[in-house]
Simulated assay, not measured.
Amino acid sequence: MELYIDAEQAAAELGVSLTTLYTYISRRGIRSQRVPGTKKRQYWKADIDNIRKRKGEKPSPPARDTLQESKLTLVTPEGPYYRGQSAIELSETHTLEDTAALLWDIRRDAVFGPNAAVAPPELRDLYKVFKDVSIADKAIGILPFVERANPRAYDLTHEGLCRTGADLLRWYAAILAGRDVTSSEPLHIQTAALCGGEDEVADLIRRVLVISADHGFGAGTYAVRAVASTGVTPYRSVLAGFAIAPGRRNVLGHRAAIGRLLDELAASSDPQSVIARRMQEGEDLPGFRFPWPYVNGDPRANRSLDDLGRIRGDHPLFVKVMAAFSYAEAELGRHPGHGMVNDLIARVIGLPSREYLYPLGRCAGWVAHSIEQYEAGDVDPPLANYRGQLPKVSELP
């Protein structure tokens, strides 16, 4: 690809005269350099293409199409749709295993069988090493050993990838519970056992896991797909999603800030004043961010709040937090996001962390994206618009 073009080419690309081109050099920031041994100059082609874009014309040569195609999830103002089916409606009847099979385009009984994945011999020692770290970091440390202990993980056929996905979900549930073996029990039942195991709590967890399974192309999904395109197993690609979890710009990375806000609300006799004080002092409201195209709150959060209210509507924390949510909506037009509601649910039902809900559900979507991207081939990265120091003509190949 040409890096520089001469004045005549540049003028032709822009559809202007040479005189107009020379005015563009200073007014529009077109970079150029002198051709050694002559009085002529060459012009940086990326700058020419950028001006063409601003004029509504297509650059030449044609830019690579950077839109990522997927058949998995459509995000609408009413919530996500998994392969054309409303995630919120699916949560009424489906389990996470059902939802994973739908996203992975395979029969549930073909991959979620009774066979348990082999535990790595180092597992007990690994639990000790990672005793005081987050669940995400624990998964990052342990899952590569699980992969190595299970040679079938390297079967990259469609069915093989799906079987590995099922093993991965079960291993994440086992890591949550600190168990040495996986279980074929439904994932929501396994999770509910960590906080008492009542049927109504298990059903709430089932619903949350289903609507958390996928949400299109967030940062985690891009990371997972980029790694999957290299031909690794789902164990490795899903680690990319866990790796970005603590990021300050990532929804999961706000967990600590959300936790502090919930602590304040729990300790206050006037939860509305907590919201008012934060706004008066210019502080942020963590957990009140939700993605496009939601304009009146995240439908997933709204549904989960309704579900939680049905079974724990009289819980003191739920009562206080709902008062704060109502105040934030009425006075500030702010609505809680899915992450905030996940954290609230975990506290009200007695789970130690939101990491027990959202990431477990999201693993199903990350595996789906891993499979789709591996089968599609390499990720096609966007063309970069270089803005640094330009090379001299004599240094160009």
Rank of each mutant, 00 (worst) to 15 (best):
residue 171 W to T: 07
residue 177 A to W: 03
residue 193 A to W: 15
residue 164 T to N: 14
residue 173 A to I: 08
residue 182 T to H: 00
residue 158 H to G: 02
residue 202 A to W: 06
residue 183 S to P: 05
residue 184 S to M: 11
residue 170 R to G: 03
residue 193 A to S: 15
residue 163 R to A: 14
residue 183 S to M: 08
residue 177 A to D: 11
residue 200 E to L: 14
residue 158 H to E: 14
residue 173 A to Y: 03
residue 185 E to F: 15
residue 164 T to Q: 08
residue 175 I to R: 00
residue 159 E to G: 09
residue 178 G to N: 05
residue 183 S to Q: 05
residue 165 G to R: 02
residue 199 D to N: 05
residue 189 I to S: 08
residue 166 A to L: 06
residue 180 D to C: 05
residue 174 A to K: 04
residue 198 E to D: 15
residue 157 T to K: 14
residue 193 A to C: 14
residue 204 L to A: 04
residue 171 W to M: 08
residue 160 G to D: 06
residue 189 I to R: 04
residue 200 E to V: 15
residue 160 G to K: 00
residue 188 H to A: 15
residue 187 L to S: 02
residue 175 I to M: 01
residue 194 L to R: 00
residue 200 E to M: 10
residue 158 H to T: 10
residue 172 Y to V: 07
residue 183 S to T: 09
residue 188 H to R: 08
residue 171 W to P: 05
residue 173 A to S: 11
residue 202 A to P: 01
residue 174 A to C: 06
residue 185 E to C: 13
residue 197 G to L: 11
residue 194 L to D: 04
residue 161 L to D: 01
residue 192 A to H: 04
residue 158 H to W: 12
residue 176 L to M: 11
residue 203 D to G: 00
residue 164 T to H: 02
residue 198 E to M: 15
residue 162 C to R: 00
residue 169 L to M: 08
residue 179 R to Q: 15
residue 189 I to L: 15
residue 157 T to F: 07
residue 201 V to C: 08
residue 167 D to P: 00
residue 192 A to T: 14
residue 181 V to P: 04
residue 164 T to L: 03
residue 159 E to L: 15
residue 162 C to G: 06
residue 184 S to V: 13
residue 185 E to G: 05
residue 182 T to S: 05
residue 163 R to Q: 12
residue 174 A to P: 00
residue 193 A to G: 15
residue 191 T to E: 02
residue 197 G to F: 10
residue 178 G to P: 11
residue 178 G to V: 04
residue 182 T to R: 02
residue 196 G to L: 06
residue 157 T to M: 11
residue 179 R to K: 12
residue 167 D to F: 02
residue 189 I to A: 04
residue 169 L to V: 09
residue 177 A to F: 09
